[in-house]
Each structure stands twice: as C-alpha cells, then as structure tokens.
Nucleic acid binder design. Structure first.
Lengths: 334, 334
DNA sequence: GCGATCTTCTACACCGATGTAGTACACCGA
DNA sequence: TCGGTGTACTACATCGGTGTAGAAGATCGC
C-alpha cells in the first residue's frame, strides 16, 4: 500500500499525491478531492521512514527526562505531548535516569536521525559538557540553565521561585530552615541553584546560612526525602522549617514528620518546589512553588518548532512565571 | 556521514559495514575491528529511517496510555522503557486521554510505520471495538481484558486483587464499604471489572451489595476522588470503609476525610489499587493492591518482542501476580 | 500576437540502508 | 582429483517517498 497505489487509483502521478498530502498550493480542487478520496478509500497511510529518508522531517521530537516515574516529569511529559500534538508532532521519550553517561549518549545519538529536534532536561551535566551540546539537531533545554551555554533554554525561575518560598517561611517567623536534597560539590545543577537562592534569601534578610541544616539527597524521591529527614532528626539539630528542593522530597519529609508526631506546621513548616498534583492532596497539603509547567512545555515546543523550521537567530533564554502556592504545611488548617 | 564513508575509510564495501553492525557471523575478526575502528573514528551513526525503509525494523515500539500525569501510567511507562531498553528498543509514547476516538486513531495509524509494535493500554474501548484490534502491527494489550479479543494480553489480576482488598476490609470487621470510581453502564472496563469483583467478594461472604454506596468518577484523579468522597459524605449514608478503584481516587478521599476530621482507619478504613509510590508515603499510608507493574512491563515487552520476531502462535493471556499491601489506612498506626 | 508569467502536473533521480545473488577461495571427504 | 560445503566478502537493485527540473496549457501585459 504505497503512494503509487493511491496515484494509480486517483489517476495522477505519485508526486501529485505527495503534493496534496503536503499542502502544495498549485493543485486544482478537483484533483485534490480525487486524491483525498483515493487515500480514504484505500486507507492509505504514509510511510514516515521513506519521507524522512528523503526530506529529513519525521514529525517526531525527542524528550529526554531523568525519570517518568517522578511526578514532575510525568506531568511535564504530559504537557509536552499535548503541546507537540498541536503542531502535529509526536514525542519520543528517552529516560536518562539522571545518569551523566546516559545523558551524553542521548545527545550524541539522537535516536539515529529519527527525531527532528530534542527537548532536553539534563540533571547530571555540567559546565564541562557544554561542547556536547553543540549538537547537529535543533535542541531546547528545559529547566536548567547550564552556565554560558549557547543553546536555547526555557527555564524554571529557580532563583526567584526558591526565594519566594524562603521569604514566605521567614515571613511566618521561621528562622532555622533545613534544606533537603542538596548536592554537595555540584555547581550548576538545580540543587545548586535552588540552594544558592535559599542562601541568598537568608543573607538578604541579614540572617546567617546554617550550613549544618543542608541535607544531601542524590535522587529526589519520596524515599530519599524521608531518609534525609531521618538524618536531620537524628542530628538533634533544631529547626522550625523544612524546605524540600522539590515536592517529592518534601512529601517524603511530611511522612516522616507525621510518623514521629512532629506537628506541621506548628512545630515545623514544610515547603517544596514543583507544585505536582499530589501537593494539593497530601495531608497537610504542601506549600510549594509552581514553576509554570504548562507554560514551559508550550514555550519549549514552540521554540523548538521555530528552530526546526530553520530559525537561526541568537539563542533565547525564556523564564517561565513561577507562582507560590501557600497551603497547610506552612499556614495550618483554617 | 553515511555507511559509504565508513566503508571507504575501512576499505570494505558498504554491505560489509552493514553486516558488522548487524552481527552477521561470517566476518573475519580483522575486518570487524577495521570497520568498528572506522565507525568510531568518524562517529558514525546509522540512519534508522533508511534501515526501516528497506528492512521494516525501526527498533521503536509504541506505548499508548491514557495519561502520563497519572502516577500509575508514569511508573508503568518508566518500567516499559527500561524493559524495552534491555532489548535495545526505544519507546514512543502516545497519550490517548482515555478518549475513545483517540484510542482508535492510535490503532488505525501506528505512527506511519515508525513503530515495530504496540503496547496498548485502552480505557475507553469496548467489545464493539474488537474489529479495530485486528491490526497489522504486532500488539500486546496491557491491563484490561477486553472480552473475547483475539489479541495478546498482559493483565492485571483485577478480580483476585480487588477481592483480596475487599476481604481484607471484611476481615477487619468492616461491612459498609463504599466504592469510588465506578463507571455506570460500562461493561468491560477496569471500573466494571473491579466493581464486579467487589460485589462478588461481598456476596461470597453472604453480604448484600449496597449499590447506593457506589460513587461514580469518570477519570481517576485525586480531584475526582475528592469530589466523589464529598458526594458520599453529603449523602449522609453510613459507611465504615472506602475502596478507591485506584490509588489516586483513594488518595483524593484521604484528603477529604482528613479535612472533615474523619479518622482513618478508626472511623473509615481506606484502600486503593495500584500501589503507586505515593501510597507508601501518604499520611496515613494507603493500603493498596500491587498489580505487579514491573512484571507486567517486562512480560509485555518480552511477548511483544516475540511477536515482532514473527511468533504467530495462539494469543496469550498472562496475569501478573498481585500483592496486597496492608498499611495504616486500614490497620492504623502501630 | 507574442513573450512572460502563472498554474497544474509529471518524470526521474536520489536519500541510506539492506536483501538477494553471486564471486572467490579454503577445506573436506571419497 | 573433484564435487560439496563453509567462509568472507561484494555488486546491485530496491524500499517509498520527495526535490528538482521541466512540460503543457492558461492568462496577461503591451
């Protein structure tokens, strides 16, 4: 079942069928309907591999994320797929597992030419990997700003968002804010940026930065958040607030605090980052920063589509609008 | 950068390069290393579209799920991607939004020959759509058993799993078990199967089925679970247990119950289905049925790979092992 | 009335792999 | 010694579309 069959049935050349399918303008209405009727009658579907081989286009974009099982990335992927759909594009998802080697592999081999462009949400890459980003494939980075990279970014406003959360805690009178999920030694990742913003917010208010209250967690899962919270409690250090560098960490913390009978927010106020759906439904509901997932997905896809269409103007850096959602984990129940 | 370039550099024919890359056995070790060296030196990557055009294989399988933002499907996709990876396959995800038309579209047009096979998790399809399943592409259905369909299935053991949950509640002395998430009128979907199993479990214990305690929810989100729970509470009906037909519904219910000051499990025991990660970390943690996600993903991919390799034996129906995880939402805190 | 331009369509080579067929040599048994 | 089999490789057509070039008729300006 090929284009030739359709052409034969419609009594035109294969190229005319191709032209009809691709919206070439100079076609008589009569011819167009004949061709469309033939396509319909035969149930013809174009072989995208063949088209891609000749023309480059596949209509597929890649989305590389660390882990789909993390709600943030699941929800992001959902949005990206819907945004891509509006451009008639399909999304191929690649899981990197936040592993640097796998992240580089994705870059080096964008699925054997099967994707026209790449949306890329790196976790493990650093300044030293910038060279790898000078890809042949159009690419838009999501989430993180890798310092001084010559690539398009659609960024979470990590700094302003984190500061808003910290200032919210400070405004509630909290002074000893523990942090979950830092990555010691890391310079450019999300962890470093958010922790840096936390420190800045404290400093701006004339407060010292209590480094002993920063607890590492490599992967940002509920389980690692719970473990870090247990280490925090075991340390015996006093704290009256807890900032999870993302929501799953904070939710893991909520669990442990509840188990230990520590009241939230009375004893400890808790805040997170991401505003995943779960944050509205936990008990207590979680105060968090909405990074504008929908906007990020939409803008990133739009930008990528422009790049794929050949736009080679200077690279852009777009920051999405964040929004602080103050909920029970800091405000209490009304 | 094509195979011809590699061939020239290695001093062999393009076909020999192809043979090396595809593991053809009759190649001298010396030749193989020459070719591999050339591939490495040039950073060559095969054009999958070209290969697909000639050979059919793309190394891509499709995964059609309702919504990635639902934790169950995010976690399932994660597992499928990892299982596919072990076979050297990439996964292309299609979101159907549980919309019947979109589900049929996916079937009718498996991405323009771009996928070698399809894993398919239908929600909206029914008995009347069976004809559409007689696809040309190898396909394995996930999760649901569409009645009398001639297609491979890797099933959640919905009936046994749900019964286990209900029996657990009964064993705790609960007798008025409300159900969230039923789909009135539906005959073959997950909702119907799980609700049917619930009813059977009650009947088997000589108990009547309290139909007034079945509350509908079209989509199985936290928000719809919360709404259904509010309707349940507004009804004034007495109940001492609550079964969410999946975890997100149950988690939405937990939220509303907590807000209303209804104690779980003292006043109402709550159970769900899916064992998403979140169920271990909610407060209280959620009793739920683990449908064996990892096993489902692995078996489904294995089966699909066999079908893609040409195995045309009779269609199989594999049920994964479920496991009941009894947690605080039914047992209380120890 | 004639070249120029626009509209509509077609012929054909070609994208980059691979299946098929076939060559050439080595080795083996009778 | 010769046919048969196994090993190692190559030439070439081909998969199904699309870019390019160009043909043929219609329309237009002057």
């Amino acid at each position: 079942m090929t284009m030739r069959d359709v052409a034969r049935k419609a009594g035109v050349s294969p190229k005319t069928v191709s032209n009809v399918m691709n919206g070439y303008p100079y076609i008589r209405e009569e011819t167009r309907t004949k061709v469309l009727a033939a396509i319909d009658a035969l149930g013809y579907r174009m072989n995208l591999s063949a088209r891609n081989l000749k023309s480059g286009r596949t209509g597929v974009i890649g989305l590389a994320v660390p882990e789909l099982s993390l709600p943030y990335f699941g929800e992001l992927a959902d949005q990206v797929i819907m945004a891509a759909d509006e451009h008639g594009l399909t999304v191929m998802i690649e899981q990197t597992g936040a592993d640097r080697d796998r992240e580089l592999t994705v870059l080096a081999r964008p699925r054997g030419h099967l994707v026209d462009g790449l949306l890329y949400s790196p976790l493990g890459l650093g300044q030293e990997d910038i060279d790898h980003l000078k890809a042949n494939t159009p690419m838009v980075l999501l989430g993180e700003r890798i310092f001084h990279s010559p690539v398009d970014h659609v960024m979470i406003d990590n700094v302003a968002g984190t500061k808003a959360a910290v200032e919210h805690l400070l405004a509630l009178g909290r002074r000893r804010i523990a942090v979950l999920g830092v990555h010691p030694g890391e310079k450019v990742g999300t962890a470093a940026i958010r922790y840096g913003a936390y420190a800045e917010a404290l400093t701006a208010h004339g407060l010292p930065v209590p480094e002993e209250l920063a607890f590492p967690a490599g992967r940002w899962h509920r389980s690692t958040g719970a473990e870090a919270t247990e280490r925090l409690l075991a340390s015996g250090l006093k704290f009256d607030a807890l900032l999870g560098l993302n929501d799953t960490l904070a939710l893991g913390a909520l669990r442990v605090l509840a188990q230990r009978g520590i009241r939230v927010p009375d004893d400890v106020a808790v805040a997170g980052f991401d505003n995943i759906d779960e944050a509205s439904y936990s008990t207590p509901s979680l105060t968090t920063v909405d990074p504008g997932r929908t906007e990020i997905a939409k803008k990133a896809v739009d930008l990528l589509v422009r790049r794929m269409a050949g736009d080679d103007s200077d690279h852009e850096e777009i920051a999405a609008r964040y929004e602080l959602h103050a909920r029970e984990s800091t405000l209490g129940v009304h």
